[in-house]
Nucleic acid binder design. Structure first.
Lengths: 184, 184
DNA sequence: CTACACATGTAAGCAGTTACATGATTTT
DNA sequence: AAAATCATGTAACTGCTTACATGTGTAG
């Protein structure tokens, strides 16, 4: 299992719809757990069938209706069990880094352009995450938040995501400059 | 395809055996491309069958023999084509980060212990990568190396790996401290 | 009346995981 | 004589990717 626990974690203390989860996994969680939108719906159905989640129809005005999911007691137990299990090896797969590794086989300018584009994307993602983190703090100092808030999980993980995207942006810009600096 | 191009990149200007590649993917490349040892052998066989690599038996004394692989012209062309292709979305999957997200469902001490353990592992990996990078420089300044070396790819990618592991180590230590700081 | 955001799925195919399997050589 | 490192695979299963499919409501 895999995506399973990421979904349970995302639903730990709130109800979210499949669509809201696709947004979360695209923007907020993608720096440490990747999942395609279609797969989320498939996995949500399985989790409901397995009794780890329950879905509830929510009628909306001005929008299509949606189904929100909530953790069951069994789901919470399963999540707790997961936190005690041994970690599977971290899996990272990034085409752009492989391309950087293969720089000698690439057109330096084309590669630099890709790096600069990614740098901008990562910078934007880092800024988005910084905003989300500030919202969580809600004016409190980090120390106060970390010692008093109920659930600091999203803040902890969000910080890692922000760091990751920031460093990615910096590295991409540096690598692009290095490649451009080699042009005659 | 996927692992395919990571292997071609690793063999860009050198011959390596399957076993040497497992070590490289475990230590040097794991921060941006994950692959299990078994899968490498499977993929190497496919790449050879497809004519992108050629394998040569190397008789060794004091060790079992090995087969080293070399890029063919077709393989190099394929790698160059890859550097121009559109990137698939970066895929990251890290159990430990999901556990951090689910902190509220976890035993704080047990989670902190896992984070501290990972911090040490990442620190060690960062140091190993720093050594490898220093070897590549071979006494030269970074600027000199980047402007004059033949193939700067492994240096560029290695730097990203070092940054990643260092930041991971820092974050894990910080997150563990935050969790421990909440204990009465 | 077109484009965009919201909203949710199904189905085929395969890349990658998990488990199993083997053997040489050096070091302790 | 055991443990560690070197060295290379096979086979079953499945989680995930890729491609396809559909429909509502808002904004320009």
């Amino acid at each position: 299992m895999a995506l399973r626990h990421a979904l349970l974690a995302a639903l730990l203390d709130r109800e979210l719809s499949g669509y809201q989860l696709t947004k979360l996994f695209d923007l907020g969680v993608s720096s440490f757990w990747h999942a395609a939108a279609q797969q989320l719906y498939v996995e949500l159905a399985k989790l409901e069938a397995d009794g780890l989640l329950t879905g509830h129809e929510v009628v909306q005005q001005g929008r299509p209706n949606k189904r929100v999911f909530r953790l069951t007691d069994t789901g919470l137990e399963e999540l707790t069990r997961f936190t005690l299990s041994t970690n599977k090896p971290t899996s990272i797969r990034d085409d752009l880094l492989v391309k950087a590794y293969a720089a000698a086989a690439a057109d330096p300018v084309k590669l630099a352009e890709q790096l600069e584009q990614r740098s901008a994307q990562s910078r934007a993602k880092a800024e988005y995450l910084a905003e989300q983190l500030a919202k969580l703090l809600g004016g409190r100092s980090e120390h106060e938040y970390l010692t008093t808030a109920d659930n600091i999980g999203p803040y902890l993980a969000g910080m890692r995501g922000r760091m990751y995207e920031e460093e990615q942006a910096n590295w991409c810009a540096w690598a692009a400059a290095a490649l451009r600096g080699r042009m005659t």
